[in-house]
Amino acid sequence: MRASLRTTVAAALVLGLAAGGTLASPAFADGRPAADTATATATAAQSSGPDVEALETALRGLPDQQATAALIRVGGNGTWQGVAGVSNLKTGAPARDNVRFRAGSTTKIVTAALTLRLVADGTLDLDGTVQEYLPGLLPAGTFEPITVRQLLNYTSGLKPGAALGETDEELYANRFKTLTPQEVLAASVAAGPLHKPGEYQRYSNIHYTVLGLIIEKVTGDTFAHQAAQRIFRPLGMRDSYFPGSDPRIRGPHHRGYQELNGELVDVTEWNVTDRFAAGDMISSARDLERFMVALFRGRIVPEPQLKEMFTRPSVDDIETGEAATMAAGLQRYKINGKVVWGKTGARPGFHTVIAATPDLSRTVVYSVNATDAHRDGGPLAMRFAFPAFNQ
């Protein structure tokens, strides 16, 4: 997820803007009205649960200009589930609620949790440095010591690494190419530091790319296998995995589409090795909800390490000049007077949100097959996530 998108979403949520507007109601590819295929179930009274009417409105009319499909899962004091749109624009088959999707930067919550588990086990030290765990990576005299904690809270001072393109069109053309974490990091190191470690917060994938490499070094195992062994399997997250260089999404899934040059292009198949521990995960709404509840209850990361995920560094965001909002993997929002911790994620064709109040009185996970997932994050969050915290 781009830093500018993250800032836009945060600003919109803090301001408490409603989704608003009138949603178009085009017909599906097979000619049925969009509302006919939208399904939703509510198991709590309106007074104690989410704003069901607003959630239903958010789904009504799909597919539209913003998205081809969406599924929402709300939990806590009042549960609600909804799905609408089509899983495939060519066939017009209706969207389903039991699908897998590219989770984008919500991957970072898993990486943060895995890192802190290793800290709790004594395998890692929060004050241990990149120079200690990956000797020779950062040239002496150019980089000051960078700690694991500074990687977790985005204050390392590392610049973004290599990418397979600058524009959506370039990225699409290179979507089947492999860019390894080592290649991504080498470009960051060659560019030198952005600022001194711990001086500012700047959201970037590079911090979590380095964390993934550290995890592999200290465990002598792949990052993907460590995530499966320590988190996915114990929690029964059967839909979650890291695909590596495999461009497919295994199992049931919606097709993802991206608007390129005025046309919707199928971008479902995509090699995302460049995202690695920062955004390579494939998951499902059920899995992410299960993970979030277990995480907030201390079943994955024990105290005192869990507090790192809810502790923001006392520095400013280098882009906004305002106080840092990110902790270890999670970001703090305030919606309708409620403190909410969560994370957004985006890959072409897929936009994801995972969020909850600290006491789990309200949780929300959604996956939206957005037609411009990277740049349309703010309006998507206001449309599909905000109503879950209205009550």
Rank of each mutant, 00 (worst) to 15 (best):
G21I: 11
F28N: 09
F28H: 11
A35P: 00
D36L: 13
A40G: 01
A42D: 11
T43M: 05
S48P: 00
P50R: 04
D51G: 08
E53S: 15
E53C: 02
P63K: 07
A67I: 07
T68V: 12
I72S: 01
I72Q: 02
V86H: 00
T107L: 04
T115V: 13
G122Y: 05
G122P: 04
D125E: 13
L134R: 07
P135H: 10
F143T: 11
I146R: 03
T147F: 03
R149W: 15
R149V: 05
P160W: 13
E169A: 15
Y172A: 09
L179N: 08
K196Q: 14
G212V: 07
R230Y: 08
I231P: 01
P234E: 12
R238F: 12
E259H: 03
M281V: 14
E289K: 06
E303I: 05
Q305D: 12
Q305M: 12
Q305Y: 11
K307V: 12
E308R: 04
R312V: 14
D316C: 01
D316W: 01
D317V: 11
I318A: 13
M326C: 03
K334C: 00
K338N: 02
K338D: 01
T344E: 12
A346H: 03
A346N: 10
H351G: 05
H351V: 10
P379L: 07
